[in-house]
Amino acid sequence: MAKDPKNDKSSRDTHYATLRRQVRDAKRERGEIPTPQPQRHRKPAVDWTPPQLAPDQVQLYGLHTVRAAIENPERKLIKLSVTQNALVRLDIGPVDQLGFPVEIVSPQDLDKVLGPDAIHQGVMLETRPLPARRLDALKDNPLLLVLDQVTDPHNVGAIMRSAVAFGAGAVITTMRHSPTESGVLAKSASGALELIPYIQITNLADALEELHKLGFYSVGLDSEGPAPMEETLSGDRIALVLGSEGKGLRQKTRDTVNALARLDMPGAIKSLNVSNAAAIALYATRQHLMKRKA
């Protein structure tokens, strides 16, 4: 008697393998996963070198990131490279009305430019960096976030998302030992880079002193801080200061802030990733400011 294909294990395995391949191919077409090169032509990822960009040029990628950049009136856009599928998903209207060139490309074309590990989702936008902002333009914002040499662009991008979520007026960081505006930073921020000023300053201690003159009370987060954060916050304008991954705040920063505070954690782990600590600190500070305003 012939076997029922539905009950045959080999047939089922073949069927599921075909479905998995179809899903994988669809994701590659959308640029959600890297497109593999033929084995005989493939080179190790370490052989890929990013293209040299001019100081006034940034390459952004990912659907949320690019859509937010296009919708930002402060962005000066140069060129959009996009797959046909991603253009539909981007949903930005007729290309002939955008006011900048649009090139239809393949996912492989974007892989060559952005590298094999970039999850570009089939879209890349060439643009100018956002205009620089001055600290004195922030005097009307009640909450600022200051980063003391946080180097990982993924962490800074995640911090930006939290800063936007809790209504911070800016993310301030140093020019040295901090990520510049880039595709990796913007992708990690998932659109938040377009919604909050990212201000890079030369000297952090001088910047904190300037913020003090503008009426901000600066609080540095330190796991060994003398008091819990909730007991340390003071005033109607707060500048939260977070240190780098591993090392924390530099000694000069510790000496410059108005106060040091800790996040009390009752569990066995007493320290958090800087982006997680930033989110908790932003929430606590927003609660403080709301009580002051009530």
Rank of each mutant, 00 (worst) to 15 (best):
T127D: 04
H154Y: 11
S162T: 06
T174Q: 15
T174Y: 14
I78H: 02
L144H: 07
R89D: 15
E181I: 03
V102W: 03
Q149T: 02
D91A: 04
T174A: 09
S182L: 10
A189C: 10
S162Q: 05
L135N: 01
G99H: 12
T127K: 00
D117Q: 14
V95W: 11
Q84D: 13
V123A: 02
A192H: 10
A158K: 05
L145S: 09
E126G: 08
T151A: 15
I199W: 02
G115V: 11
G191M: 13
D222L: 09
Q200V: 04
D96M: 11
A168N: 03
E194A: 15
H177Y: 14
V88Q: 08
V184M: 07
H177L: 07
L135I: 13
F166P: 00
F166M: 11
V113P: 01
Q149H: 14
V95H: 13
G220F: 10
E194D: 15
H120F: 01
Q97L: 07
A137V: 12
K187P: 06
L214C: 08
A132G: 03
Q108H: 11
P107R: 10
Q84S: 14
D206F: 15
E209Y: 13
M160D: 01
A192M: 08
V88E: 15
A158Q: 06
L90H: 00
P94V: 02
V156R: 10
L185T: 01
P129K: 13
H154P: 00
A137L: 12
S178E: 04
V156G: 13
L135R: 04
F166C: 02
V102Y: 02
A165L: 09
Y198V: 03
V95T: 15
K112C: 02
N203S: 13
Y217E: 13
G169W: 01
N155H: 09
A192V: 03
L135M: 05
L144P: 00
V156C: 07
R133V: 12
N141D: 14
V105D: 09
S218F: 13
E194H: 14
A163R: 08
D206T: 11
G122D: 09
I199N: 03
T127G: 06
Y198P: 00
G167Y: 04
V82S: 05
T180N: 13
G99N: 01
E210G: 09
D222E: 15
I92Y: 01
S81M: 12
N85Y: 09
L145P: 03
L147G: 00
T202V: 11
D206N: 12
T174M: 15
D152R: 11
V146T: 02
L125N: 04
G220V: 06
L211N: 02
V184Y: 03
P142W: 08
L144E: 06
I78D: 04
Q121P: 00
E181Y: 08
V164Q: 09
V102K: 02
I92T: 10
I201C: 04
T151N: 14
I196H: 09
G93M: 07
I196C: 02
L214E: 05
P129C: 10
R161W: 06
L185V: 05
Q108R: 12
S81R: 14
L147Q: 06
V164R: 04
